[in-house]
């Protein structure tokens, strides 16, 4: 088979249809592991911000996790707050800047372990903010320990024989819980394990920004992301492993859309 030289742009007449990185990313390089799903999710979020023309009208609040290093890479006004507190910080920001899209970027450890009260009560208040949870079922930043969202049987560094319901307790299905709350206007769960799912997730991210801006309350956008390092699997097997473990517990799709009736955002 003939290998094509891909080191330089093509010589023949051609149109560039996609850049290496979204324009709101200052730099391609990052230190996240091979096969990590988080940069993919962040790419989607940044692309949607541009599509929705929120580039100069948004503030990001990052929690603590591997994704936190993206504060240096994302060309948006941003702060990195204390572990778990992002929805509280977002509340203060949104109340003082109601016209600005305020969004949090958190992991499952940040949101469901350390900061469960913050996300629940911010949803209860119906704050018009967007909260992203990058869910990989482990504390990736510290090397792969159990979080509140680790699934039963999942092997982590501190559930080495697998998470046991009787001993370690059961995972928290936060999106399902929030979807029952009147203050949460949009709740959805996407994934970045393949291109189709990525496209579906992109559409959900659009709504996750639009609904709070339209006053429908808090949007929780959970995104399943691969963490092959934290799962102790080869990078190339991360996607498959994820859908066999987390994917079986955390079903994909929209769980709630209070703004569906007023939706002029036809599938584009």
């Amino acid at each position: 088979m003939r290998a094509i030289d891909t080191s330089l742009p093509p010589q023949r007449p051609a149109t560039k249809t996609a850049e290496f990185k979204p324009s709101l990313l200052l730099k391609e390089d990052h230190h996240l592991c091979a096969g990590c799903g988080e940069p993919v999710a962040i790419r989607l979020i940044l692309e949607v911000i541009e599509e929705l023309e929120l580039t100069q009208n948004n503030v990001c609040i990052l929690g603590h996790g591997c994704y936190g290093s993206f504060i240096m890479l994302m060309d948006v006004d941003s702060t990195l707050c204390l572990h778990g507190r992002a929805p509280a910080v977002a509340t203060g920001m949104k109340r003082m800047r109601p016209g600005v899209a305020i969004w949090t970027l958190q992991g499952d450890g940040d949101m469901t372990s350390e900061g469960l009260a913050e996300i629940m009560q911010t949803a209860a208040r119906g704050e018009d903010v967007t909260c992203f949870m990058l869910n990989n079922g482990v504390f990736g930043d510290t090397g792969g320990q159990m979080t509140a969202s680790s699934v039963i049987g999942q092997r982590t560094k501190n559930t080495i024989e697998g998470r046991d319901a009787g001993y370690h307790g059961n995972p928290i299905q936060l999106a399902e819980i929030l979807s029952q709350m009147p203050g949460a206007g949009y709740v959805a769960r996407g994934s970045v394990h393949n291109a189709a799912s990525i496209n579906a997730t992109r559409k959900m991210i659009r709504k996750a920004f639009q609904r709070p801006m339209d006053g429908h309350g808090l949007a929780l956008m959970e995104i399943l992301t691969m963490c092959p390092t934290g799962w102790f699997v080869p990078p190339g097997e991360g996607a498959e492993y994820m859908m066999e473990s987390l994917g079986k517990v955390y079903g994909l799709g929209e769980l709630k859309d209070a703004g569906a009736a007023s939706d002029d955002d036809s599938d584009d």
Binding site: D77, S78, M93, I102
Partner: peptide, 13 residues
Amino acid sequence: LDGTMGGTGASRW
């Protein structure tokens, strides 16, 4: 952080 500096190359942190 008023949100206005996104995409300008001078975003705040």
